[in-house]
Amino acid sequence: MKNTRVLLAKVGLDGHDRGLKLVAHYLMEAGMEVIYLGLRQTPEQVVSAALEEDVDVVGLSFLAGDHLILAPRVLEGLKRSGLEEVMVLVGGIVLERDVPRLEAMGVRKVFLPGTPPGEIVNFIQGAAT
């Protein structure tokens, strides 16, 4: 079985990526292949990287309150590129009341502040089996 491939990115202008880099570290340690695109990615960049890298999971981190505008763009782009099978996860500073809206857009799971990174690893592993 091939390793789970995970694409991580900060979409939007926010530059805080301590949390996302921690997640990257934990995922790699769990044996997954992680591609971290870095800061200030556009939805288009994320979609084309997802296509090129043939990933199973896309993880997006938002801390500046722009998730309801930017997450749907990534989801739509993935759909247009025929990547609706790719699991999209969101983490960061997201209000609980926004979770159902993100899920309705097609985000598989939203990880709220304080989530242990191990929980994200378990979620991806659980979804893969």
């Binding site: 202008l13 200030r40 500046a64 722009d66």
Partner: peptide, 22 residues
Amino acid sequence: DLPTQLGLDSDAPAAEGAVGRV
């Protein structure tokens, strides 16, 4: 806000969703 910090005007495409936010 982040567009101001990053030298983008409020009408720049990349500024969308970030104007007056943080």
